[in-house]
Design a protein around this nucleic acid. Sequence first.
DNA 1: AATCCGAACAACCGCCGCGAC
DNA 2: TGTCGCGGCGGTTGTTCGGAT
Length: 218
Amino acid sequence: MGRSPCCEKAHTNKGAWTKEEDERLVAYIKVHGEGCWRSLPKAAGLLRCGKSCRLRWINYLRPDLKRGNFTEEEDELIIKLHSLLGNKWSLIAGRLQGRTDNEIKNYWNTHIRRKLLSRGIDPATHRPLQGPADVSFVKADEKGASLIRKEDEQKSNNSSSSNSNSRSSSDEPKRWRCPDLNLELGISPPSHQEEDSEEDLMREELGLCFRNGLLEFR
DNA sequence: AATCCGAACAACCGCCGCGAC
DNA sequence: TGTCGCGGCGGTTGTTCGGAT
């Protein structure tokens, strides 16, 4: 069976954090710093599991969080990074000061996906949506909600033969690629024989480089 | 005024990578 | 070399809120 749970679930709170819990967590981390999440709740006097504390701190309580609306520049940067990295939210977040992976993930799913669809761009592949039917669908529905539903249906159809959890396809090689961009990010650096592709230029612009065969930030 | 519905986002769950032993 | 535990990640769910009917 699976591994044991990260904490004694019977004696932990779940759901929304109270003001007092937040204050306790912040006060503890101010004194002791981050880390040792497993032992933190007991030490801080919190009836929470360590994971929950970590998440709350990372996504909400950290003092360097920006919060508030995303700027147009941030939008475009997220789109560029996503086209290169796919759903690697933590990597994308690492490039946006004061933003968390969870925040960017939520923002992507609620705003940017719709924005790209309204531009006639497939948010999964960053390519123009295929076929006249899809385009007219966008025009007919500015909000894109129906299109998203349609896209979801297609996705579920496509994935019906395979597990939707990409990480569970364990026979995949130990590398990952940007969706439909032919970017084999875990293998050898791009050949110099070819001229710089659009992706190469984008990597350059975003400060990405290959190191030990892996795509990393400079 | 009540209800419905979708958007937004906080939080949880399950899995994986990696270091320690 | 294999196992275990922790931290981290990405997907998903739950809750809240505001606008439409």
